[in-house]
Write a protein that binds this DNA or RNA. Structure first.
Length: 118
DNA sequence: ATAATGACTGGGG
DNA sequence: ACCCCAGCCATTA
């Protein structure tokens, strides 16, 4: 299906502005599935080639990179975020400062795939 | 349909 | 504040 849960995850992540971050749980929550944080992470691990999803803007609830920080993935994510102006302190991001506020209500409905009652 | 997987999360020690 | 444990969920084999 072209509108799988994964697709919806990508749609939400694409809304995260540069310089800000969201947690896996937050994305899941926006999609109406507050307990599907792990699935969100899995969706990002399954990103197809040539995508335009800013996956690096998604971190865990502690404000740290979930990918092995010493591995290539973690280093890349860390670098991409800093390029956008996100500051790391002791290896973690202050979500109060860089945390994405999230889409407004109307947009949330759209992201969940609900119609505005056409 | 059952079982296993994975870039999570919150609570307890 | 940090580490560990058990629960949760969509997708795949």
């Amino acid at each position: 299906m072209t509108d799988s849960f994964f697709e919806r995850v990508y749609r939400v992540v694409r809304r995260i502005p540069a310089g800000q971050v969201a947690s896996y749980g937050q994305v899941a929550r926006i999609l109406g599935a507050p307990r599907a944080a792990r699935t969100v992470g899995w969706a990002l691990s399954s990103l197809p080639e040539g995508h335009d999803v800013p996956w690096h803007r998604v971190v865990n609830s502690r404000g740290t990179v979930s990918l092995d920080a010493r591995g290539p993935g973690g280093a890349i994510q860390h670098a991409l975020l800093e390029e956008e102006g996100v500051v790391f302190q002791e290896g973690r991001i202050d979500l109060k400062v860089y945390g994405w506020a999230g889409p407004d209500l109307a947009e949330q409905r759209a992201l969940r795939g609900e119609d505005a009652g056409v």
